[in-house]
Design a protein around this nucleic acid. Structure first.
Lengths: 77, 77
DNA sequence: AAATTTTGAATACATATGTTGACATTTTGG
DNA sequence: CCAAAATGTCAACATATGTATTCAAAATTT
């Protein structure tokens, strides 16, 4: 069996798109989500893979459901 | 500011429920998902927080969408 | 009840996530 | 164009995820 991998750039692009739709900066979002700004930057560039916990905090800060973000990621796969 | 955290036991219970619904063991699921069996065990017990990557591999192995699992988690919150 | 399968648990370890601070680069707005 | 804001990037570090092995405990099966 082959091991599917999740394209981190897609994850990052989706999160960045949600953030921009809200019209807030990385600085503001990372502050609300209580995660490091450079960390969020790395996630959006696909250089870090967030835990479900981190995605949850981002989704709460963005005021959307995790499942909305995840659905968007899956649509982009 | 408030600090939302994702209850790992809920995440674990949902994943375990999906697995049991499929009628397969941790051994079999971890094999399909290509993750360690003890790791899956720890996730199901809420002692490890999976990355989105790991959840993706589990969802593919379970033949369900990540968003289905995530929706179930959010319903349980 | 005995045997088998499944799961929990502990260890030691490798690798990745996540943090803070500083500075460079790019983008945006006046 | 210029200043300010936003983002990219690097380093050093702390912490957590994820690995493999082993054994115990619990659940199934016969």
């Amino acid at each position: 069996m082959y091991n599917p991998t999740l394209d981190s750039r897609i994850v990052g692009r989706v999160i960045a798109d949600f953030r921009k739709r809200k019209g807030i900066s990385q600085e503001v979002l990372s502050g609300f989500a209580d995660i490091g700004r450079t960390h969020l930057s790395a996630i959006e560039r696909g250089e870090r893979k967030p835990t479900l916990e981190t995605l949850y905090r981002i989704s709460v800060a963005l005021d959307v459901n995790m499942s909305e973000i995840v659905s968007e990621i899956e649509r982009a796969i």
